[in-house]
Design a protein around this nucleic acid. Structure first.
Lengths: 254, 254
DNA sequence: CGCCCCGTTGAGGAGAGTCAATGGCTGTGG
DNA sequence: CCACAGCCATTGACTCTCCTCAACGGGGCG
């Protein structure tokens, strides 16, 4: 998962991976609902999500919750550990999560010794920040339907990047309350809006999965422009790549 | 400005600064309203804002604008240039801006040769990302008054960090429309809400400046908790620092 | 079997948006 | 020096998206 994800940006040589594979690390399994990182605790390691979904959130004193972003298989997170700060937010497992933790010191050494790995991880950090910026635009200037459609398209594209299977059906472990807390809405309104999207044929749902019935229309309605995911390098470096890429207008290229 | 800002995290030795000061750079002055970075153009340099305010924004196809964050004197931005990607957003000067641009290659060399500088810049990047996350919480889960109060407190604290003058009065070059586009509101509603805040004695305004009349009450009303700015290191590393630090509850320590 | 979580739906309310008019300030040109 | 244009902040009246409160039903699990 993880290698596949970084490969969306740059194809790494085997010996770079050898360096990475010999890194000291600790693998842990978290059940759904358990915290991986708790706000206020010091960060001392970098995490790689090997499988499962996780989310980063912050609670206000009066209980309001805002989900900042979602972590999908292959995502690297908490690179801020490299600055040895305390976490200002928490991370929870949405589903069961298999996580590798790498202490920051050997991780930094690795970055110093492999320029290719360093630039791959840097890309990963840039992509994460870019996703945060897009989340700001999503919440700040989009309607409820646009927010939901846009989020679904982002999750779909990232899911495709992680799994390599480019189909319209997407695992969906999030509840209405999760989606609401991510998008600055209430669960009730998310439910209503998604019901309307179902009625107009944009999506269908089964238990634990959602199918995007018309990605192009959904992208148009949500003003989805996937440039912010910075996946273009794939085409440049790797023209025969298996995964088709959306164009800037959010339409599938194939 | 810039050195003072990084000093909030770590006090650097003179020879570290010598390395930094001899870096190749290009100084440019941008008038208010001019673009420093345009979405879609390749990023090849790192910017340091020496003076003035700037903002990062994204436009949707139908003209809606979302301001992602503000840059104050001393801020470093576009570290994503190090991954050699294209910008997915634009940056505009709010006031006249004096900017130093450093090409990414010598910048990377500098990071490699000075661990102290690397960790100072890393802190800066972590702080920026943290501000983005807080912006998400602000827009997603706060009322109009809370959003405005919270933003003002953040700008105040960052302004103090940049200028070193810890007073309640704050330069305010932003229009109602800027504030609205940053907070996901309309100018009309920002105007109304700020009028109400003036009436209740929270703030006063003169042309181009705003005074926070009661920071503590404002912090309480806005659920402002400044941990996310990661300024605590100042106390640890530099106990005699001149700037007082808010506590986690957003109250001035002195 | 019964509890609890989740999604859904309805009714009513509120916060924020829209449209529009007014007035102050600034810069500019006659 | 004054007239006027343009931008910005403000205020009023009205609208609408989204929220709140509440009830109900289905499914998983002890």
């Amino acid at each position: 998962m993880f290698k596949r994800r970084l490969a969306q940006y740059v194809q790494l040589e085997n010996d770079a991976w050898t360096v990475f594979d010999t890194l000291e690390r600790q693998d842990t399994v978290y059940e759904a609902g358990k915290d991986l990182i708790r706000a206020g605790e010091p960060a001392q390691q970098v995490f790689i999500l090997q499988s499962g979904w996780a989310l980063r959130y912050r609670l206000l004193e009066d209980g309001r919750r805002q989900i900042v972003n979602f972590m999908l298989p292959g995502d690297v997170f908490d690179l801020q550990a490299l600055a040895d700060l305390t976490a200002d937010h928490s991370v929870t497992a949405v589903t069961e999560c298999h996580v590798s933790a790498i202490p920051s010191e050997p991780f930094i050494d690795m970055l110093k010794h492999s320029g290719h790995l360093a630039s791959a991880f840097w890309w990963s950090a840039v992509q994460e920040e870019s996703i945060l910026r897009e989340q700001i635009v999503r919440i700040g200037r989009r309607s409820a339907r646009e927010r939901i459609g846009h989020l679904l398209l982002e999750l779909h594209r990232r899911y495709v990047g992680a799994t390599g299977e480019d189909i319209d059906r997407l695992t969906m472990p999030l509840t209405r309350a999760d989606i609401a807390d991510a998008l600055g809405l209430t669960p009730v309104h998310v439910s209503r809006t998604m019901s309307a999207m179902r009625r107009s044929g944009l999506i269908t749902e089964e238990k634990g999965a959602i199918t995007l019935e018309d990605r192009e229309r959904l992208a148009r309605l949500s003003l989805f422009d996937m440039d912010y995911l910075h996946l273009k390098k794939l085409n440049l470096l790797n023209p025969k790549a298996a995964n088709p890429i959306y164009t800037g207008r959010g339409v599938d290229a194939d």
